[in-house]
Every structure is written in structure tokens, then in C-alpha cells.
């Protein structure tokens, strides 16, 4: 464990908490892409199956359970509790355009042709594109509430910090996970446009981020 990875995990946790609390307190999921949240729940489900096969550390186990629980709670709030507030006509990204290539690639490019390893690889590739429906929804509505942009900021920051963690681990322990690194870089690149808007608009105190 190093400071970059710890900061990344904390940033990820903060993002998930921000969204969950926002939906719960505002009793609304307007502007939130339910599809992205379902994809994130799928990412955690397919990635954390090793909860049942191997114990790594208390931290590892606890964080995996927390991420799983909170992502399912978010999906529950969007599609069950506050479903009448769900903005379905703007959440129209075709997720099959993400799932088909990701499934295909995880069968082609993996470390071992075993169910657990292919599911892990699937979760890594899927996480890189899981935010697409949410970013698409924001470009479609042309705006995002500032709390939603904070959520996206911490979500994007988490994988950027993981890249720093991979650089650190490469130089200190010769650790290199090619699939995770390549996918993590692609994932972070997708946020760059948002990061620019976030810094130039939201941090300037705008109530909400209005896209140009």
C-alpha cells in the first residue's frame, strides 16, 4: 500500500458517498445516469468475486464490501426508491455499444483463460467506459449540478491517483499490471475534458456547470 493508492481509494469512496448522499438528501436522481451506476455495480460485482476465494487484508475486504454495498444502494435509489425522478429520456446511451466490445476484448486480452480472471479483466475494461452514459447525459442536457460535478471530479481523480500508484509500484517493487494500467490511462483520459470544465467553471463558483 502506498499513499497514492490510499488517496485513490479514499477519493473513490468520497465520490460514491457524495452521489449516494446527494440522491438520498435531495430525494431525486435528476441529472444522474442510472445506466452508469448499473455499470459500476457490475464492475464491482465482477471484480470482487475474489472476496469468496482469497483473503488479502482486512482493508481490502472491507473496502470491497463497502463499494459493493454503496453501488447497489445507489442503483436501488435510482431505479426503485426515486424511480419517478429518474431522467430516462436523457439517459439514452446505448450500453450495449460498451458491453459487446468489452466482453469481446476481455476474452481476447487477459492474463489467464479462467472465469475469475476473465471477469476481472471484464471489470477493468468496463470501468474505463462505465462513465460514458453519465458524460453523454451531461452533454445532452448541457448542464450538471455542481454536486454531480464534484462526484465526477473525485471519480476521475481516483484512477489518476492509481496511475501514480502504478508508477510508484513499478519503481519500488517492479510491479506492473499491464491490463489495469492501459485501461486506467484510457479511463482517466476520458475525464480530461471534464476536468478542464470543472476547473474553469465549477471551481470559479458557478452554481452549476453549463457546457459551452
Amino acid at each position: 500500500m502506498n499513499v497514492f493508492r490510499l488517496a485513490g481509494d479514499v477519493s473513490h469512496l468520497v465520490a460514491i458517498i457524495i452521489l449516494l448522499v446527494k440522491i438520498w438528501r435531495s430525494k431525486s436522481c435528476a441529472g444522474i445516469s442510472g445506466k452508469s451506476q448499473v455499470l459500476f455495480a457490475l464492475v464491482f460485482t465482477t471484480r470482487y468475486l475474489d472476496l469468496f476465494t482469497v483473503f488479502i487484508s482486512a482493508y481490502n475486504t472491507i473496502m470491497k464490501v463497502v463499494f459493493l454495498a454503496m453501488s447497489y444502494a445507489t442503483v436501488y435509489l435510482i431505479y426503485m426508491r426515486f424511480r419517478n425522478m429518474y431522467d430516462s429520456e436523457n439517459d439514452t446511451f446505448r450500453v450495449e455499444f460498451l458491453l459487446v466490445p468489452v466482453i469481446g476484448l476481455s476474452f481476447l486480452e487477459n492474463y489467464a483463460f479462467t472465469p475469475l480472471e476473465i471477469l476481472w479483466t471484464f471489470s477493468i475494461f468496463l470501468e474505463a467506459v462505465a462513465i460514458m452514459p453519465q458524460l453523454f447525459m451531461i452533454t445532452k442536457t448541457g448542464e450538471a449540478e455542481s454536486i454531480t460535478t464534484h462526484y465526477l471530479f473525485f471519480l476521475g481523480l481516483y484512477r489518476a491517483l492509481y496511475i501514480a500508484n502504478w508508477v510508484w509500484r513499478y519503481h519500488t517493487e517492479e510491479f506492473f499490471d499491464q491490463i489495469a494500467v492501459v485501461s486506467g490511462v484510457v479511463q482517466t483520459i476520458f475525464y480530461c475534458d471534464f476536468f478542464y470544465l470543472y476547473v474553469t467553471r465549477v471551481l470559479r463558483g458557478k452554481a452549476k456547470m453549463i457546457l459551452p
Binding site: R47, T53, V54, F55, S57, F176
Partner: peptide, 10 residues
């Protein structure tokens, strides 16, 4: 060059 078995990263 990877953690075998369980993944130590989240």
C-alpha cells in the same frame, strides 16, 4: 509481475 490469486488493488 502481478499479484497471483486475489488482487491486492481495488
Amino acid at each position: 509481475d502481478r499479484v497471483t490469486g486475489g488482487k491486492d488493488e481495488l
